[in-house]
Every structure is written in structure tokens, then in C-alpha cells.
């Protein structure tokens, strides 16, 4: 089999998941799109493992680890989403904007640049 087929399929699946993460509004749908992206990576890992005929089968072992970590991630993520829904009454990521900079036009340009510099320094 040509390696191009699984590689291209993985790239397209990843971009589908990317679109879902960026465009979806419900947090659970965002989690579904993240699962799609993780699966694209898994397909790449398996395909390259089979191609390279690795002695340690690192690709397949890493795929199993990714699947387990994805399961852990979905559990924690859903717990957080449920908690947010219980506290706020919504699971829409668009409405969770407590950390948003509320008044983008309030400060002058120099002030904003100063703030951004501070944020970069803190990061």
C-alpha cells in the first residue's frame, strides 16, 4: 500500500477536527472534534510504524498510550463541562467570556502595548 493514502487521510481528518474545534459552539461538540484530531494522529502513528517495521513497535505502543490518554481527557473534559453547565446553565463556549478583555477601546495604544508587553513577560 502506498504510504500516501493513510497520510493524506490523516491530514484531512485532522483538518476536519480543526474546523470543528474552531467552528462549534457547544463544548461537547468541541470535544468530539478533538477526538477526531487525536484519531488522525493515531492513524499516522500506525501507518508509519507499519512502514518502518520498528523493532520496538514504538508507533503502536504510542497509539495505545494516546488512546488511553484520550479516554482520560474525555472524562476530565466532560466533568469540567458538566460543572460549567451546572454553574452557568450553558455549555456554549461563546458565552464563557469571563476572562475577556471587556473594553478593547478603553486604553490608548501605548497603554495596550504596555499591557501586552507585561503579559508576554509574565508568560
Amino acid at each position: 500500500m502506498h504510504l500516501v493514502y493513510p497520510a493524506v487521510l490523516a491530514a484531512l481528518l485532522f483538518c476536519t477536527g480543526l474546523y470543528g474545534v474552531l467552528a462549534r459552539r457547544n463544548a461537547i461538540l468541541v470535544l468530539m472534534s478533538v477526538e477526531l484530531m487525536l484519531n488522525a494522529v493515531n492513524l499516522n502513528l500506525v501507518a508509519f510504524d507499519v512502514w518502518l517495521r520498528d523493532e520496538l513497535h514504538a508507533g503502536q505502543a504510542l497509539t495505545l498510550f494516546t488512546i488511553a490518554i484520550a479516554a482520560a481527557e474525555i472524562g476530565i473534559g466532560l466533568a469540567i463541562v458538566l460543572q460549567v453547565h451546572r454553574n452557568r446553565g450553558t455549555a456554549d463556549v461563546d458565552r464563557l467570556r469571563d476572562l475577556r478583555d471587556d473594553a478593547p477601546d478603553a486604553g490608548s495604544d501605548t497603554e495596550r502595548a504596555d499591557r501586552e508587553e507585561k503579559a508576554e513577560a509574565a508568560a
Binding site: L18, Y19, L22, A23, L29, V93, D94
Partner: peptide, 14 residues
């Protein structure tokens, strides 16, 4: 309202 308002930007990025 399943899709947010920035779906066209998301489509472009994807």
C-alpha cells in the same frame, strides 16, 4: 446555533 459566528474563518483556516 450549533455553529458559532466565526465558522467562515474556521473554514478558511481548516
Amino acid at each position: 446555533d450549533a455553529d458559532s459566528g466565526n465558522r467562515w474563518a474556521a473554514l478558511g483556516v481548516a
